[in-house]
Design a protein around this nucleic acid. Structure first.
Lengths: 102, 102
DNA sequence: ACAATGCGTTAGTCGTCACTAACCTATTTG
DNA sequence: CAAATAGGTTAGTGACGACTAACGCATTGT
């Protein structure tokens, strides 16, 4: 799964990215925020890393994960490429309709 | 898979949404743009429909699919909720770094 | 040196996804 | 009415994703 969009879509990984965006964290720190095992988190991090969204820095016996801003940029570009002008116009229509309802 | 984000993330469904955003289409019209069978497309449309992203209007023996702007609005909200301020700042950093490279 | 800690890795399970092939139903057309 | 067309439906398959349990390997602390 090299596709950043698909990698980031998974709910657990979405939250991991948000946590890491706030500040870099160790694996255990991240895992503490989730009901699943550390192993599961570790594997999610692997997916995110292979999509170029995070990287790990080895410090002592810890691995500090951080978001890779370059990968994040790619993700944003991918989202933007998906979100065409036509899609944007349709959302604008929805807003307009809601305004008429009042 | 009720989650609009996950539903929209799948590459084929992403393209289907873009096609339908440009203009409503029949199933066969959509399927013509993909290498997979009409059945596969039909199932993708079911997923999109159950996520509230598209709807079908029955006209004669055709089914004209169109994007539901309300669902699209929800999707945008979901993406925006994911894309926190912190993530945005990191992307800004990436841009700044690239500028320094020159 | 030895125990504890942090984390990656692997094997295996279960569920789900994307897909095809085949079939069925409704509608239109000759 | 019969053939053709549009498309939903289902069963079955292969692959893969998310997860746990168990183990292995450094690194740190006693």
């Amino acid at each position: 799964m090299t596709d950043a969009f698909s990698a980031a879509a998974e709910p657990t990984r979405r939250r991991i990215l948000q946590l890491l965006a706030a500040r870099p964290r160790t694996v255990s720190e991240i895992a503490a925020d989730f009901p699943v095992t550390r192993s599961a988190i570790s594997q999610h991090l692997l997916v995110l890393a292979s999509a170029g969204l995070v990287e790990a820095e080895k410090v002592g016996r810890q691995r500090i994960y951080r978001v890779l801003s370059s990968g994040l940029q790619d993700l944003q570009a991918e989202i933007d490429r998906f979100w065409t002008h036509e899609l944007d116009e349709l959302v604008a229509d929805a807003h307009a309709l809601r305004r008429e309802d009042t």
